[in-house]
Design a binder for these strands. Sequence first.
DNA 1: CTTTATTTTTAGATTTGTCTAAATTTGAAT
DNA 2: ATTCAAATTTAGACAAATCTAAAAATAAAG
Lengths: 228, 228
Amino acid sequence: MNAPALLTSTEENYLKAVFALAQPRIGTNALADRVQTKASSATDMIQRLAEKGLVEYERYRGVGLTPSGRVAAAAVIRRHRLWEVFLAEKLGFGWHEVHDLAEELEHVQSPELIRRLDAFLDTPSYDPHGDPIPRADGTWPTAAGIRLDQVPVGQSFAVAGAADRTDELLDYLHRVGMVPGTEWTLSEIVPFDGTRTVQTRSGRTLDLSALAARHVLVQPHESQTPNA
Amino acid sequence: MNAPALLTSTEENYLKAVFALAQPRIGTNALADRVQTKASSATDMIQRLAEKGLVEYERYRGVGLTPSGRVAAAAVIRRHRLWEVFLAEKLGFGWHEVHDLAEELEHVQSPELIRRLDAFLDTPSYDPHGDPIPRADGTWPTAAGIRLDQVPVGQSFAVAGAADRTDELLDYLHRVGMVPGTEWTLSEIVPFDGTRTVQTRSGRTLDLSALAARHVLVQPHESQTPNA
DNA sequence: CTTTATTTTTAGATTTGTCTAAATTTGAAT
DNA sequence: ATTCAAATTTAGACAAATCTAAAAATAAAG
């Protein structure tokens, strides 16, 4: 329960992999695959992380995260996803290009840097892929609903919120009338680029890019078959 | 003359140190001091860099950079100083805080990242300390004059240009009338914070912060003693 | 309940970058 | 020209992270 010792980049990468794959435990081979190494190397590394109290490990039984391992993993993921937002929103990289770069940037050790980066980006809750960004305290944003890009065609829903607080997004959603509380139905998903067409009960339609759809949180309704 | 092989962070740090200290050669001890290591380690590293053709090394005689070493060093320094500009201008770090962080960020390997970062920052020519940023092609910005913060009290000068192209700086200089071709005399340097007071021949005075003074390039006049 | 196949772990070696301590070389002083 | 001190290099060891190849444990199949 003392201050979290500094981890090497390699240790951080293993932690992330365990976090991603352990439900609740993951084997050495799968882990080695994930971090691009061999099973024997993974065993070595895991034993070190176990000594540091970050994973719980039993020989031949796989690994899982301890509570403090979960906190450490969230910190790394937070750094990773904030850098992804920076790369996409500020430098104009495509959402598919940002992962590898963030993989390097995430290991720069400085709480103050991350605090300021977070503020500079307007404290986003989701990265360019739509994945949640852990908060500074290690908690995860629980979607006030599900993301619009995960809603099936035909589903009706109410807008619950926006995935981040940038003026650009909020202005845009306000301008097109997609504000919390409003009711819509998803009528089409364009296969080519994932554009969503939604419409109000009064018949007004609106096209939203896949990116925009990832940033809109909605509360789906019971079902489109009105019974009861 | 083939593509420059990827260097490790450590190799890059040694290269920077040789660049900074070799005029034209530097000894093992001084180099070791600079990179926070021991002379024996420096010897090892230098021999590796010599094999890669980046430094010219003769036993017991010290090291200097080869032409391709100079190019590689410029690339590292370019990355370092661009990150410094980012940290200071975008994240609001003080100019004294940016060095150590840039030291880590500079080793992220991606030409495209640096290209985009450079554009995002409006292609600055000087970092927050006033040091020149090598261009993408490895050439160095030769000051159209000297920086105003290096002018002694009493000196007259003509404004030659601005150290970078950000709208903020250019707008500001335009607004206060400090545009290329105008004539001024430096009448005071405030010891506390380095603020410069300058005045026109007609007597108008203007206070410039130390930061602003670092970003103004001037052409000093012969002398303040009017003879001939 | 054996046998076999898969997964996991150990053992020993390698690379990068470092260290201490001992051996060399250089250059300066007498 | 010797001697001496400072700078530099070698030698040998170590820690982190990895690998290959061999050994051990588990799980699956008959």
